[in-house]
Design a protein around this nucleic acid. Structure first.
Lengths: 252, 252
DNA sequence: CGTGATATTGATTCCACTCAATATGAGTGG
DNA sequence: CCACTCATATTGAGTGGAATCAATATCACG
């Protein structure tokens, strides 16, 4: 958790101490398919995903399903509902994993005790939003080919950031139906498109193991620019002037 | 601004005083078509949209354009880039209006001085994210008809929330090309679909004036549920326990 | 009265969907 | 070890919604 927070801002000792004081809830093991929460339940805590993959999904009136976000090890689930009283989506484990809780009242405690860590939480929230915004563009304007390529590039980039995975050959614990529901396509078309990408030597997939054979060309196909994943709050070192308000700023 | 913040949480006098102390930058008038910022520029302030409509857009390599967010009077632009060093999109005025700035260092000051207002900022950010997430679902899974109907319902609901507009007949300052770029459709198809919705007596549009003739049926067509727009942080009254960490919580 | 932005309408094309049949493989129980 | 089942994936045929291309129409504005 310290590592995850530190990825967005240089933390001070006091912040680390606070984080450790808050990390009282012991982590628990969960299994693939376990439901972390359901739509409509009271939202009273964030979940820190220490190991494993998870996703949030929504079900529509007509029975179709939308996979909203994919969470990788180190991610925080539930930031989105922090200000909603209740869950807006279902959260499900895609693999076995380990999670721990951070109750909302402890988040408020972070707000009141560490502006720097507040900024970090904001940064993480912003990153989620950036990922959503990026997917929005991809869904609105790109072909099936590009959507899949983009999704794979994004997974790779996020795994690379954790520096724990072999990002060119990893376990992608999503069925083709899951991918379809995430990318707004049909499972059948996911299959066809994957086959076509494989024939071109870009990727290779059997069962849930994915191999990216040509990351550069894949990124080209996807028009992928990973800059939206790099969120780092430079300014959060600066501890906000104690009392004097609004010193003169150079105009933009 | 006080009104906008108050919509998400019961503010205390001290918070209002802080807000007013921060509102030093005088607001400025802007005209339709004015560019508030461009992709790549340094992001060092939020913009509070006091009057008028604005939107953020992104341009893709192939020249196509994505309208990311629509901002109505009272909204805050740039929350999204708070933790990015620079702008991720262009921001443009859709109508004449009035904006004022809130520099990032003042946001940090809010973080360090008012946990409650920090929570409000988080709530607003969450609401933006909710709108994005909702549009994601709509783009991924719904027909042109439903997309347009949903968009109109959303505009109506957001205008209703400000209680300043006649929400059933309002100025929608978007060309059909803008709508197309927001909803992932072609301008031609927007035209056809609008015509069809008009023939059914659901809406009526000439030039930029939109009339919603049958809000209920329109909401039905759109499968619209506006609950994602209501973000209110109940808990932010509770001023985070002073020192004792993690009192016992009932298990979920 | 021309010009440029915006919108409408028609004809045609194509990407991805649906339906449907079959394949592949993991897990289970006999 | 084999037969059965269930989840997942592949492949083919046909359809349809929205895109594209292209030709007007409408209107604000200088």
């Amino acid at each position: 958790m310290v590592k995850r927070f530190g990825a967005h801002c240089a933390l001070k000792d006091t912040d680390i101490a606070l984080l450790q004081a808050l990390a009282t809830s012991e982590s628990r093991e969960v299994k693939a398919g376990d439901i972390l929460w359901r739509t409509g339940e009271t939202a009273d805590a964030l979940l820190i995903l220490q190991q494993g993959w998870a996703c949030t999904t929504r079900y529509l009136q007509d029975g179709s399903r939308q996979v909203q976000e994919i969470f990788l090890p180190g991610d925080i689930l539930g930031l989105y509902e922090l200000a909603f009283g209740d869950r807006r989506d279902d959260a499900t484990m895609l693999t076995d994993g380990i999670v721990s809780e951070l109750p909302h009242h402890q988040v408020l405690e972070i707000f009141s005790r560490s502006p720097r860590m507040t900024a970090v939480l904001f940064a993480i929230s912003n990153q989620h939003q950036a990922i959503l915004a990026e997917r929005l563009v991809v869904l609105a304007r790109r072909s099936a080919r590009e959507r899949i390529a983009h999704f794979l590039c994004e997974c790779r980039a996020r795994l690379l950031a954790t520096e724990e995975a072999d990002a060119d050959g990893f376990l992608l614990p999503l069925t083709q139906q899951d991918l379809a529901d995430a990318l707004g396509l049909s499972a059948v078309h996911i299959s066809r498109t994957f086959t076509s990408l494989a024939e071109e030597g870009l990727v290779q997939r059997n069962h849930f193991h994915l191999m990216i054979r040509d990351p550069e060309r894949l990124a080209e196909v996807a028009n992928f620019d990973g800059s939206y994943l790099r969120v780092y709050w430079e300014e959060c070192d600066e501890p906000a002037a104690p009392s004097s308000l609004s010193p003169p700023i150079e105009a933009g």
